[in-house]
Each structure stands twice: as structure tokens, then as C-alpha cells.
Computed example of a mutant assay.
Amino acid sequence: MSNTESNITSQPDNSEKTPFMKTNMPLAVGAAILALSSGLLGYSIGHRQGLTVVGYDADAEQLVDVVQKQKTELATLNKNLNAAIQERDVAVSNSNDLYLAVNKARDEQEHSGNLGILYREVLRQRGGMPLAVQHLAIKPLPENAFEYQLDLVQVSPSKSSVSGSVEIRLIKGTEALAVPLEDKNFNFSESERLTGRWTMPKGFSPDFIEVRLSGSKPVIRRFSWSKGQPVENQSAFLSEIPQTEASVN
């Protein structure tokens, strides 16, 4: 009887343990899945956060480089702007000075022109002034070339024009060379300027230069020859400058 009771007593203990495990198995599996999911989620968030921090550092460094580059370019632009402003101020100042100088020269030219008109009128009233050589200038150039500038003037009481021709001679002792003139004819009422160039023969050094004007009344003027410093920059080809020729008279 006692053995039977012990067997009967032990059977209820096994029947109670088996349903408990079966009943709580889904809960245990869910807890395990939840723990695994939490671990994966934490790793994913941490990994993304790490990538975000690394990307932010790279973007920040690139932004710093861009800002520094822009600062350098801005400093260069400011420097160029200041230089341009200074150049503009200098140009404006020079322009103003040039404007004043031009106006002053124009006023002086107008004043001289008015005085010239007045003097010519006085000369006309006093009988006028015959054809004359007002000025002769000789400019030495490189390679034994020379440039002449001849100013002629006359004042006619009747305000008529005068015409004729010009001859320029280089004289050394009894030898005379004719200077080739680009335009030897003249025709003017008050004044005229004749210019040209020629090449002096090698070894020839004149003592005098003579100007002869042919017209209603011949005019001859002789000037002492003097040589100045040659001009370094000439505005014509020296090979095209005509040579002097011996004068027949």
C-alpha cells in the first residue's frame, strides 16, 4: 500500500513541470529574439552614427579649405581694387592737369594769334612786309642725315598772296651743293612752313647754308652752319632720304 501511494504521489509532480516549460517556451523565444533585435539595432545605430561623424569631419575640413580659399581670393581682389583706385585717382589727377594745361595752351595760342593779327594789321597800314625768311632750323639725324624746317612770311597791304620757289644750298669755300627739296614751291598770303630731309655727302662739312627765294623780288639769306647733337629716333627710313647735288651756279 505504501509503495502504491508513493507512485501515485510522484506522478502529479511530473505532470506539473511539463506544462510549465511548454507554456513559457514562446515567451523565452520572444525574449531571445527581442534581445538579439536590440543588439542588432544598437549596432546599426552606432555604425550609422560613426559614419555620420566621419562624414561631418570631412565636410567640415573641406568647408574650412573653401572658406580659406575665398578669403585669399577676397584679399587679392581687395588689393587689386585698391591698386585700381589709386591708378584711377592718378589718372584723374593727370587728366585734370592735362586739361588745365591744354586750356592754358589754347588760351595762349589764341592770345598770340590775336596779337599776330593786330601786328599784321599795323604792318599793312605801314606798307606791309615783303617776302622774307622768318626762320630756318636744321636738325641732324643719324647716318649723316639732316632735316630742315623753313618758315616764310610776308604781309601784303592788299592781302594778296605771294608765290615762287625755294632753293637751299650748302656752301664750302667755292663749292656749293643743292639740297633736294620735297616741295620747293610756295604760295601763301601770310606764312608757310616747308620741311624735308637730305643726306650729306661723306666728308663734306659746309661753312654756310644759303636760302634763295624766287618771286616778284628775289630774296637771298645766308646762315652760318653749326651742327648739334643728332636725333636718335627718326620717323623716316634714312635710305629713302635724297642725296645733295652739286649746284651749277
Rank of each mutant, 00 (worst) to 15 (best):
Y99T: 11
A101L: 07
A101C: 07
A101K: 07
V102K: 14
V102F: 04
N103H: 07
N103Y: 09
N103G: 07
N103I: 06
K104M: 12
K104C: 07
K104T: 13
A105V: 01
A105I: 09
R106L: 05
E110I: 11
E110A: 14
H111V: 00
S112F: 05
G113E: 14
N114G: 03
N114T: 06
N114S: 02
L115E: 05
G116Q: 12
I117E: 09
L118N: 09
L118M: 08
L118V: 03
Y119T: 11
Y119A: 13
Y119Q: 08
R120E: 10
R120G: 12
E121S: 15
E121W: 00
V122F: 02
V122E: 03
L123I: 00
L123R: 10
L123F: 06
R124G: 00
Q125E: 09
Q125C: 10
R126G: 07
R126T: 05
G127I: 10
G127L: 04
M129P: 02
P130N: 13
L131T: 00
A132V: 06
A132D: 06
A132I: 04
V133D: 04
V133A: 11
L136G: 08
L136C: 09
L136Y: 02
A137I: 07
A137S: 14
A137C: 04
I138T: 10
I138P: 03
I138D: 10
K139E: 15
K139M: 13
P140M: 05
P140T: 07
L141A: 13
L141C: 13
L141H: 08
P142I: 04
P142G: 01
E143V: 04
N144Y: 05
N144E: 12
F146R: 02
F146G: 10
F146V: 01
F146P: 02
E147N: 04
E147P: 03
E147T: 02
Y148F: 10
Y148L: 09
Y148M: 12
Y148A: 10
Y148H: 04
Y148W: 07
Y148R: 07
Q149F: 11
L150G: 06
D151W: 03
L152F: 00
V153S: 15
Q154K: 09
V155D: 11
S156E: 06
S156W: 07
S156Q: 12
S156R: 14
P157S: 11
P157F: 00
K159E: 15
K159N: 15
K159I: 15
K159L: 15
S160H: 10
S160T: 14
S160I: 05
S161L: 01
S163N: 13
S163D: 09
S163W: 03
G164S: 10
G164D: 13
S165E: 09
S165V: 13
I168K: 02
I168C: 09
R169H: 07
R169V: 12
L170S: 00
L170E: 01
L170M: 12
L170R: 02
L170T: 01
L170F: 11
I171K: 14
I171S: 14
I171N: 15
K172L: 12
K172S: 14
K172M: 10
K172V: 04
K172A: 10
T174I: 11
T174N: 13
T174E: 15
E175L: 12
A176S: 11
A176C: 01
L177M: 08
L177D: 07
L177N: 08
L177F: 05
A178C: 12
A178Y: 02
A178D: 13
A178L: 12
V179F: 02
L181Y: 08
L181A: 01
L181F: 01
